[in-house]
Design a binder for these strands. Structure first.
Lengths: 344, 344
DNA sequence: CACACTTCGGAAAGCGCTCTCCGTTCCCCG
DNA sequence: CGGGGAACGGAGAGCGCTTTCCGAAGTGTG
């Protein structure tokens, strides 16, 4: 195929009439090298069309210029169709966008890694320790996932998006989910809804659990010691199904908090199919303020989560930790805001 | 930080009482090694907690187990907010989902690479040739982008999603965009629309150009030698703006073909704000059949593009090419289908 | 003018792995 | 029982790069 061997540093050095070591020093801008040699070497680089072999470089420096975006596979593997759905969910895209905003400027590559089995976790940590990747950003994990602990133990730079299941000294960025759910509760009550239900995400994920807890707490404050609740898995379809179930069990429902916009969209569809008007008969509040919220009819009242900023912050945190290995784990919690639109 | 050096193959070999070469052979399942040694080595692997250093392995094998998802940066760099938007667009997510469906099983990692400048292109090709990545999937590029040619010239395994600007012997997967646009035209005409406009994507991207060409051709067949056209950039906002402009120039419009669902969503919003009912006053046909189409009100009539399948096919094509370096470039063109919902 | 001190380039030792050689061992057949 | 061949393990040469260690040269001071 390509008969020609790629030029190596050796070739550049020969072309420039210096040693490999000197060529390397010039290219990496290390130590004071005689300015004359400097330009000679760069000319040789251009003449030969040299491109450094990152693999070889990383092998010795133990720095790869890549960070891993870790996605829990258990979360996506339940059933195959869900795999595609997870990536198509605005959640994923917004996170990637936020990360890239920071990483692109730092010249760092993002690699996707799905992790489900214990073996994959071990390998992930191994790769990280080997310098295959410099660090990891881990997307919201089930609370029971041992990964955060493993990462900490291995002393590997990592940032979670979404708090760890149990306290672990690790960097993370999160939203004040409980506060956000409270905002939704307050709004529904203030609007005059009397029978208020919730469609939650999977309780096994901290973000899911926190939204449930926050909502229940706020509702209790308003005198509702108990709220009807059905769980979904953050997909629109699950929102439709959950709404059907809720409606069957509590036909008199007139207020609904849904733990993300996609499910809220589904719920609205079901409600409308059941002859309920939104917001006149049932007021609906979503969560995320994803693009789906605006597209809905009526536009969704929702709790805004600045995911892009959160992801960017995660990247920044990771970058800082990469610079300074002694950095203590820190966490950044963002405040949600209620965006009132047409649905409640 | 970690006082303990990571176990190397050497350590495993010593623990197992064999040579490094034998340990390597067992771990990689190469050649017949005495079955007894087999288990001895694996025990040693478990005992030491050995994880192969992929970097070192790749350096010699020139296979990295990673493929690059290349995104044109010019496409996203125009203005910063658009960057996030590109990733949040269902388009990106659906492609990633489709790719992962195939790559995950093959145990191959996906890395994101944004490419804009000439230097980045050179480096991309260099990385590929060095074996930093085994191949590339390139997301729809401006027609003028030299990347496809460079990839071909370098003899590097690559698959485009969306045809190249000009004929280049390279693998690609595409949709019969012209056919799809024709479907939309036929439908609008059959519905009785008399003044039909189009909101297109950027004409500089083949997919954008093909949809324009296909629509014009079909409209001409129906006796409309000329159609009002405004271009957007595939974002919802640009769809809103384009619809405003179209409405201002051709207030009597009663049919509208929009080159993707996101822009169609924006157009519907604008139309409604202008007091036009959809579909009664203006019939709207979108393109993609993304999740946005279902969320819209009314649900969008749209031209379905099986992006996940196309991406999966691209991955498969790439994998096949990786297996068989002599494989001739091939292309797979998918047929679109009109999905009739409420908007037209 | 000699001496200590700084600056700079080169030789060479790896980073951890794969894989080609090559020498042994073992088996089968004549 | 001896010879030919297959099967198998080990030594060692790299993959392309960075970086430590040195010696050689250049600089300034007593």
């Amino acid at each position: 195929m390509d008969a020609t061997r790629l030029p190596t540093l050796e070739d550049v050095a020969r072309a420039a009439g210096v040693s490999r070591a000197t060529a390397s020093r010039v290219i990496n801008g290390v130590r004071n090298v005689d300015p004359k040699l400097h330009s000679v070497v760069w000319d040789a680089v251009n003449a030969t069309g040299y491109v450094p072999n990152r693999l070889a470089r990383s092998l010795v420096t133990r720095r790869s210029g890549t960070i891993l975006l870790v996605v829990s596979d258990s979360e996506t593997h339940d059933d195959d169709p869900f795999l595609g759905r997870f990536f198509a969910d605005p959640y994923f895209g917004r996170v990637v966008g936020g990360l890239m905003r920071v990483l692109r400027e730092a010249g760092i590559q993002l690699a996707l890694q799905m992790v489900g089995t214990a073996g994959q976790r071990t390998r992930l940590v191994g790769d990280l320790r080997h310098g295959q990747a410099d660090g990891a950003v881990v997307l919201s994990l089930p609370a029971a996932d041992p990964l955060p602990g493993m990462l900490t133990e291995a002393g590997v730079p990592a940032v979670l998006i979404g708090r760890p299941g149990e306290p672990v000294p690790i960097n993370y960025v999160d939203l004040a989910n409980e506060t956000g759910a409270g905002l939704a509760a307050d709004h529904l009550v203030a609007r005059g809804a009397r029978t208020i239900g919730m469609i939650s995400g999977p309780p096994a994920v901290p973000a899911g659990a926190d939204r449930i807890a926050g909502f229940r707490r706020a509702m209790a404050r308003h005198g509702h010691g108990w709220v009807p609740l059905v769980s979904g898995n953050f997909t629109r379809e699950s929102g439709e199904a959950a709404a059907r179930e809720l409606l069957a069990r509590h036909p008199g429902i007139d207020g609904l908090f849904v733990a993300n916009d996609l499910m809220a969209l589904g719920a609205v569809i079901t409600l409308r199919a059941a002859g309920r008007r939104v917001p006149e008969d049932v007021a609906v509040v979503g969560f995320d303020d994803s693009s789906a919220a605006l597209a809905a009819d009526p536009p969704l009242t929702t709790v805004r989560q600045p995911l892009e900023d959160m992801a960017a912050e995660a990247a920044q945190l990771l970058l800082a930790r990469l610079e300074d290995a002694t950095m203590r784990p820190s966490s950044v919690i963002y405040e949600p805001a209620l965006i009132v639109r047409g649905s409640a």
